[in-house]
Design a protein around this nucleic acid. Structure first.
Lengths: 225, 225
DNA sequence: CCTAAGCGGAGTGACTGCCTCCAGATACGC
DNA sequence: GCGTATCTGGAGGCAGTCACTCCGCTTAGG
């Protein structure tokens, strides 16, 4: 689109422009983590302390901004999988991966949405297939071959397990952030090839009152509808 | 609200009015089941083959229409819980309840949203607390006392289990409607007090390609964001 | 056959979210 | 310093959505 012929003399960005671009990236990271991918570019600009016009000069649209921070959002997840793969104990590696991955998603709502396929863009879509899917397969294969994981589990199961736990996490995040760990543990007990006695649960069940509060209309959900 | 004093001479509804009211209720039930509670009253009116004006003459707003069909949407769920409670085998009763409840939610997207606390209204909110919560508690208590369910499970766990499985169901509904049963089974294996060998899974895992397809942007989710 | 009750659906108003425009401010080469 | 290309902020345009209203025409039914 732009002229890309001989080494054209392109003037460098002005210093304030660079600074504002950086501010926007930081603000975007913060807001995506806090509120999810549905924040508007206007939100991000306000949070960065710049005008919307500035935001749109730096990034053609929200997708482009998202793409610019995408690598940072996902590198940790890939690292968690790699760490699990080099763990000498395959079961411990698999469990550690799920625990780390979900803890990351607890801290970063946007990442949770990417993993769960919510409001996904093409990059994220392909990244799931090309980067994470093979790692998931390898983690599962290793644990299965070591005889600690049920024979009938596949790599794709890790995806759906995260989808389910993400839903629980989303509901309970504000009042009981680590409730999801309870259900992760129950699921893991169901994944063992030769289950022993049940593992103690790391988090107590909610009381009826707490459940009622958590299941009520949230700021984000439109009541009545 | 309406005058309910002496036997007032109130003219009966015209026959076409009655017919249209019925059509609207049927259309609402269908659309809520198919598409969830976020359908508009305009959608419902069109689907019923009447004008929006007619819809608003019969029901002051969408909430009122929803309230009118609410009982029908939830009575089956309560019945499933009662059936589970009278099952001679407490474990079988608990499992049967979850299976039936989730099967109902597979067929009725609106019901799934009510159970998961999505786009909830006050009636639904209270119904969860006052009707379903005690049944859930009883089902869990019975299975626990029979020694077949882990000691550390509470009635509220049934709620969150359904939230998680609903999320999986929502993603996979179109292409692989019963995939959620796979994860329900895994969870149930994790819920046993004294687990034996793993129960066979009723549904195969998705392949990587199938997972990729299912996790992609859906008609309902706004891509890029 | 008369008329109150009912009908359809275009239209209204309130939002929300993406993005553009441009008058004024600012960095930076000379 | 000065002049200008670059950048800034935020008001507002535009398009889409959705709940709900209004009103001229139709129709049930006494």
């Amino acid at each position: 689109m732009t002229e890309t012929g001989a080494p054209k003399k392109a003037r460098a960005m002005r210093r304030d422009a660079v600074r504002n671009r950086e501010r926007l990236l930081v603000a975007a990271r913060e807001l995506f983590a806090e509120q999810g991918l549905e924040v508007t570019l206007d939100d991000i600009a306000r949070h960065a302390g710049v005008g919307v016009g500035t935001a749109y000069r730096r990034f053609a649209n929200k997708g482009e901004l998202l793409a610019a921070i995408f690598a940072g959002q996902t590198v940790e997840l890939a690292a968690a999988a790699d760490a699990g793969l080099v763990d000498p104990d395959p079961w411990h590696g698999l469990v550690g991966y799920l625990e780390t991955a979900l803890a990351l998603q607890l801290r970063d709502r946007g990442l949770a949405q990417i993993v769960s396929g919510d409001r996904i863009s093409v990059e994220q879509y392909d990244w799931n297939r090309e980067v994470m899917a093979p790692k998931n397969r390898a983690l599962v294969a290793r644990a299965r071959e070591a005889g600690v994981l049920r024979e009938d589990i596949e790599g794709t199961d890790l995806t759906f397990i995260q989808v389910g736990l993400n839903a629980i996490m989303t509901r309970s995040r504000d009042a009981h952030p680590d409730l999801y760990r309870r259900y992760l543990r129950l699921l893991l007990d169901g994944l063992r090839a030769r289950p022993g006695s049940p593992t103690p649960l790391p988090v107590a069940a909610l009381t009826s009152d707490q459940t009622h509060a958590v299941m009520g209309p949230t700021s984000r959900s439109t009541a009545i509808g």
